[in-house]
Simulated scan of single mutants.
Amino acid sequence: MKEILRTNDAVLVSAVTALLDGADIAHMVLDQNMSVLEGSLGVLPRRVLVADDELAAARQLLTDAGLAHELRPHNP
């Protein structure tokens, strides 16, 4: 799995996961439940990871959705 996005914006994470779900791209969100430990301050970013073999498709999907500026730098 490769990290494609890191953000404190819960709405953005929700939108990205909805796009990935709609395209049947395997993904997972890490650190989603860390808000319990941090007191819901939004300090710890959530990370969205996609399957290695679907990274290019996920990047293209999010770029097409106008979210290219949110993507992590591509490290092959």
Rank of each mutant, 00 (worst) to 15 (best):
R6L: 00
Q60F: 04
A57N: 11
A18H: 10
D31R: 10
G39D: 06
V48S: 01
H27S: 05
E70T: 15
A56E: 15
H69F: 10
D53R: 11
M28G: 07
L67G: 09
G39A: 08
R72P: 00
V11M: 08
E38A: 05
H27T: 02
L5P: 00
G66L: 07
E70C: 15
A26N: 07
Q32C: 03
V36I: 14
D64S: 15
T17C: 15
D52R: 07
L5C: 04
T7E: 02
A58M: 09
L67A: 10
L5N: 00
V36Q: 12
G22R: 10
M34I: 14
L5D: 00
L62M: 14
A57P: 01
S35R: 08
L71E: 04
N75P: 00
V43F: 07
H69N: 10
R6H: 02
R72Q: 13
M1T: 07
A18T: 13
R72I: 06
A58C: 08
A15F: 05
M28A: 13
P76Y: 08
A65P: 08
V29Y: 00
I4E: 02
T7H: 02
H27V: 01
P45G: 04
G42I: 03
E70F: 12
L55F: 04
S14A: 15
V11I: 13
E3Q: 12
L20H: 03
V48F: 03
L61R: 12
S14L: 12
V13R: 00
M1R: 07
L30S: 11
L37R: 12
V36S: 08
L37D: 13
L61M: 13
L12I: 03
P45F: 01
A23C: 12
G39L: 04
G22M: 12
D64E: 15
L55M: 05
E54R: 14
V29G: 02
E3K: 09
H69I: 05
H69L: 10
L30N: 06
G39K: 06
L71A: 08
E70G: 04
D9R: 02
D53A: 11
D53H: 14
L49V: 03
L49E: 05
H69Q: 13
L19D: 03
K2H: 09
R6P: 00
E38Q: 07
E70D: 15
A23H: 10
